[in-house]
Amino acid sequence: MSAPPPPAAQCLLQVDHLRVAYGHVEAVRDICLEVRTGEMVALVGANGAGKSTTLMTLSGLVRPRSGKILWEGQDITHWSPHQRVIGGLVQVAEGRAILKTLTVLENLQLGAFTQPGTPNITPIFERFPILRQRAHQLAGNLSGGEQQMLALGRALLSQPKLLMLDEPSMGLAPLVVRDIFAILREIHEQGMTILLVEQNVRQALRLADRAYVMETGTFSLSGPARELVDDPRVIAAYLGG
């Protein structure tokens, strides 16, 4: 463990000794993690390491066994999922959790469900013109890349303070992955705080400020992403040496 933990005041999200289990299977074992405002933090690791479980616990869909989640300094461990979204903790789940039986426009409108008034979708249509063209089609008919853009645009409409993304590159062609990462970079440069879960370790480390490497439920390494790219242990395990 390199980088010393930042003082709590600067922290948007702070995870304190979190443990999560499914029955007898311990999926997350005693992790501590911080995300500061304006950062892009990557959470990388192999299949089954516990990355999605971590995000689902942060979103309140999975209850932790023990540990605490602090959000802007406040203990939100027992908040319901929708309270967390209202608070600005927003996740794009694994496998693009778009609503296939609703139209593209309806998906976007639901992204703004927690926001008062009529949602203004224009900025999202400007960022993703393809969504405007497909606005009245069922979201299930979009291609994989388009679905990921819809999921991303929809999440942005919830006005996140922290955007958590679970493997946005999953199952997409390399060119499309490049597009998605470029969009993430752009959103981040415009000031969005991001927690990015990825198996695409090289690209994630290139994009992020800091990273945590997760192995069987714990963090084996963490630190500035730039340093981790050159770490021999990371190279051997994830970057194909």
Binding site: S59, L61, P81, V90, L99, L102, E106, F113
Partner: peptide, 25 residues
């Protein structure tokens, strides 16, 4: 209606609906 949209979202996936901030319970 917006309520109806939220209900249809839950009908498809309560989990995805919860992640949108819909008070599923």
């Amino acid at each position: 209606t917006r309520l109806g949209q939220a209900l249809r979202a839950i009908a498809e996936s309560p989990r995805a609906a919860a992640l949108l901030g819909i008070p599923v319970e």
